[in-house]
Design a protein around this nucleic acid. Structure first.
Ligand SMILES: [Mn+2]
Ligand SMILES: [Mn+2]
Ligand SMILES: [Zn+2]
Ligand SMILES: [Zn+2]
Lengths: 148, 148
DNA sequence: GTGAGATTTCGAATCATTCTAAGTCACAAC
DNA sequence: GTTGTGACTTAGAATGATTCGAAATCTCAC
């Protein structure tokens, strides 16, 4: 289920952590591994339970800490939908999120550069945006449970 | 500070409530009045304190109830930014939100139909979205504190 | 005016997240 | 090799926005 990190992913993790003056720890590796294993935007609690299977002593606080660290060094994004638990996404390409009303599942939606550009263009002069979050909410036909 | 509702706004409120089988109450009128008075996307707590000035016995639970009712009958929208308290917006035109990193203020950003359309177009077949939320986060030059 | 149902109110409960403080660990300096 | 330092992890308590439960009050059709 939870495969190990590829060499490439391991380097990605190491580089990002070390570049921001932080250490590579077994807990961070385990949490990062969980995030990359499935692209289903897990909650903290879901990450916690998955990571525990491979590292039984891991604490919930540490999962919170790891995820915060990853967000801080740009390894993952937080995804919020209304008042639900925060979810985490390791997809660094620009994309929107679609939350399926029925299943609760969150899907990545590719965001072409020209659409991103047209979105930025609606900002009046003086508004300078660093982050844009786009989220859809509705029904998705369940064609493929591996889709993201 | 808090003006009374115009006849038009009052009718809007009555119509929406009655259409969905609910009653017009003094509390609901007070909360709605507060929402329309300033377009600054207040939190529940802010609505509560403003409405209290005009109706001292009003309870926080009722403010939660009223706002939930209004969202249910389409009179206002909820606005969420990350993990912060939910804010409320009476602007029913399609628009995006811009949260100013420095002031915390939330501004409405007009959303032209063609941009909305280009956004919808990124959804793959089978994805049917009822709600799209777009939020920007960054710095805005404070030209006009009345802007929304 | 009455009664049924909706609404309001207060306080308690929930629950995701953050905080605190103590225990571990990695590793550099001596 | 011991020791010191700072970063990291851990368990549990605290926080705070929101929701729930139950009793009191109001509203409106009859
Ligand atoms: Mn689906
Ligand atoms: Mn501003
Ligand atoms: Zn994603
Ligand atoms: Zn708005």
């Amino acid at each position: 289920m939870i495969r190990n990190l590829t060499e490439q992913d391991k380097e990605h993790l190491q580089e990002a952590l070390i570049k921001s003056g932080q250490k590579v720890t077994p807990q961070r590796e385990a949490v990062f591994t969980v995030l990359l294993a499935e692209r289903d935007h897990p909650t903290v609690d879901e990450v916690f339970h998955r990571a525990r299977e491979v590292m039984p002593g891991l604490s919930l606080a540490t999962v919170y800490n790891c995820l915060e660290t990853f967000v801080g060094c740009g390894l993952v994004r937080q995804v919020n939908h209304e008042r639900e638990s925060t979810r985490y996404c390791p997809n660094l390409a620009p994309h929107a999120h679609f939350r399926d009303k029925e299943t609760g599942r969150v899907h990545d939606i590719e965001l072409p550069p020209e659409v991103l550009k047209s979105l930025r263009s609606i900002l009046p002069p003086g508004f300078d945006s660093e982050v844009i979050e786009i989220s859809f909410h509705g029904r998705a036909q369940a064609k493929d449970h591996h889709s993201n």
